[in-house]
Each structure stands twice: as C-alpha cells, then as structure tokens.
Design a protein around this nucleic acid. Structure first.
Lengths: 183, 183
DNA sequence: CCCATGTGAGACATGTCTGTCTCATGTGAT
DNA sequence: ATCACATGAGACAGACATGTCTCACATGGG
C-alpha cells in the first residue's frame, strides 16, 4: 500500500477523462488510496490537475522525440507522431477539455513548446511542397488536437475500434475524405 | 425586463462554452436576469443543460435541413453543412464536452437522429465513389464533431480567424493536408 | 383605480465538496 | 523488539452552490 505517484496520476487521468467532475474521494478510490493520502500529496484539486498537465506534457514531448519529426517526409512524421501519441490520448482528451477552463491564467509554457514543434512540422511539410498551404499550420495543429480528442472519446465509447485509432486519425488528417485515385 | 427564453438560453450557451463550471448566478447575470427568475424557469442546472441540448439539437437539425444533404455531390453537401453549422458551433462545442458527463444516462434521442443523418451523408459519398472507404462513416461523423469543436475553440481563443472557419474545417475534412496537384 | 402577474433582491436552510485534524494500524529499518 | 514513518478511517468545520421562501416593486389589464 505504498504510494506510487505515477500510478495515482494515471488512475486519476483515467477517471477524470471519463468524468471530469469526479470528486476527490472518487479519484482517491480509483487510485486505491484514501482521500487523506491523496490530499497529502496533492493539496487541492488544482494541484492534481497541474500534476496531470505536467505528466501530459512530459508524455507529449517524449512522443514528439520518439517520432523524430525532422526525419523523412512530413506525412510519415505525422504518422509516427500519431502512433506515438496514441497511448496518452485519454489524458490528452481530458487536458484538452480542461484547458478550456484556464481562461485568463495563461497556459502552461510546455503547451507552447509542443504547439511550436507541431506547427513547425506542418510548416516543414508546406515548405517542402508536401502539404497544401491554404490551411495554416496553426489550424492544422489545432485540428490534430481535435481529432486526437475525438478519436480518444470515440474509442472510449466504443464507436470505433482501438486498433484503427492511428490509421483513422493520421489518414484523415493527411488525406481527407476524398478518394485519391484520379491522380 | 420580460423573460425571453431564447435569449436567456443563448446567453447561457455563450457563457457556459467559455466556462463550463459557471455558477447559476453567473449564468443569470450573463442573461440579465436574477437567479430567482432563472430558477423559476429552469429549476436545476440539469434542466438548463437539457434545454440547451434541445436548442442545440433543433439548430443542428435546422442546419441539416438547410444544407440539403441529399443534393449535389457529397463534398458540396459537406461544405454547405459546415457553413450552415457555423453559427451554432460554440453551443455545439459546449454540448460536445458536456456530453462526456452523461455517461450512463443514455443520450438524447435527437443526437442519434443527427448522427444517423451525418453518417448517411458520408455513406452516400462512399457509395458514389466520391469518398474513400477505408475510413468508416461513423468515424468521419465523429471527426466532423471534433473538428467543429476544435475550430470553435480556436476561433474563441483567437488562434484562427472566424472568416476562415468554414473553409478550414470543410477542406481539411474533405481533402486533408496533402497537396492535391500530382493528379 | 385596483388587482394580478412577474420580477429582483435578499435571507435562509440544505447538501456537497473540500481541507484539516486526530488516532489507530501496519510496515520497514535498526 | 522497538521506533519512525506513512497510511487509512473517521470526525470536524468551513466554503460554496443550490433551491426555496418572503417581500417590495413595476407593469399591464380589468
């Protein structure tokens, strides 16, 4: 019954993704610890959310590193990225919706770094003539977030198979819905 | 100072989209009425959310009607649909995130109807050979929701221009990021 | 003019979540 | 065995949102 910070954070993320308004007692029970212990380590719900944010940022940056965005074609980099991001989608989905609440406080600097790296990837694709230029790189970054969240929720609700996750998101983002035969 | 149900609902939607945890007093103040009056007409927060849901469903179905999804190419139908949906995006974005909370209760039947109409549109595009078939129509429907929400929030946060809304979403969904020259 | 209706303001009780505290228990190290 | 330490369980008070109630006021119709 020792305290495993990482395991607690993951249990909290799993629960909060499904039920964003969960009580601290529910979070504690989901993590297998008491409310008192949860409060000793994370004094306040905002502290817990910030810790989840830090975890999400760390996992995102690890995924970005693992995807080696600078190598190969931008399209392949996007595919590697989506695949690398898949394990932390539910955490991202939670933080994505939670972020809407952080109105004025200014967002975590980590997200800016991640935004910048993603935007740079799309800009590279545009500069290489690989991606179209009438959709701004900033919008493509936002769209990727939206598709990841939509995909994560669709998987949770059983509307789509988890195995299809990477293919669905990456191929929709890259190729859209239109058939590409013609060519 | 008479009570205008529709105006109150729109004010509530605007506020709740930006701050999903807003107090009933904040909602009332945003709508220009007192908390007592708000509670007379919407006894309970869930009643208010349900009313917003009904409003969102009604506006969605009106947009679906206006877009005449059965006419012309499926791609053009999607473009008309996104354009018709644009005015109620913020309400949709709120309901989209709020819906994650309705876990067990079973969702409003209206959403099923809307899902079905959207899925039918994508299926038609696939049957006509216009859309690719390796992305399921159900996923395309979910993706459209995700892109609408992402677009709505990106506009609210000033990351992208409101004028670009329709083009960004529709063209990304239809054509993806890849350049389409070649062909 | 009088009355009915609807509203705003405020007070009040209630329920819930939260943060904190105490105390007993269990575990590991010495 | 003993001690230090962390945890679990429960109690407690405070903060907050909520729902309800009363009362005063304005408006509109009879």
């Amino acid at each position: 019954m020792s305290f495993d910070r990482d395991q607690v954070l993951r249990a909290a993320a799993d629960l909060l993704t499904r039920k964003a308004t969960a009580t601290t007692e529910e979070v504690a029970r989901a993590a297998g610890i008491s409310r008192a212990t949860l409060n000793r380590h994370f004094p306040g719900r905002d502290v817990l959310v910030r810790a989840l944010e830090d975890l999400g940022i760390a996992e995102c940056e690890a995924a970005l590193d693992a995807a080696r965005l600078a190598e190969g074609t931008a399209a392949d980099a996007v595919r590697r990225l989506v695949r690398a991001l898949e394990p932390c989608t539910s955490l991202l989905a939670f933080l994505y919706s939670e972020n809407q609440l952080f109105e004025g406080e200014g967002q975590h600097a980590g997200w800016s770094r991640i935004d910048e790296r993603l935007t740079a990837l799309f800009r590279r694709g545009q500069a290489d003539g690989e991606f179209r230029i009438d959709l701004s790189a900033v919008w493509l970054t936002e769209a990727l977030y939206g598709l990841l969240a939509a995909g994560g929720w669709a998987v949770i609700e059983g509307r789509v198979a988890r195995n299809d996750f990477t293919h669905m998101i990456a191929e929709l983002l890259l190729g859209g819905t239109m058939r590409r035969d013609a060519s």
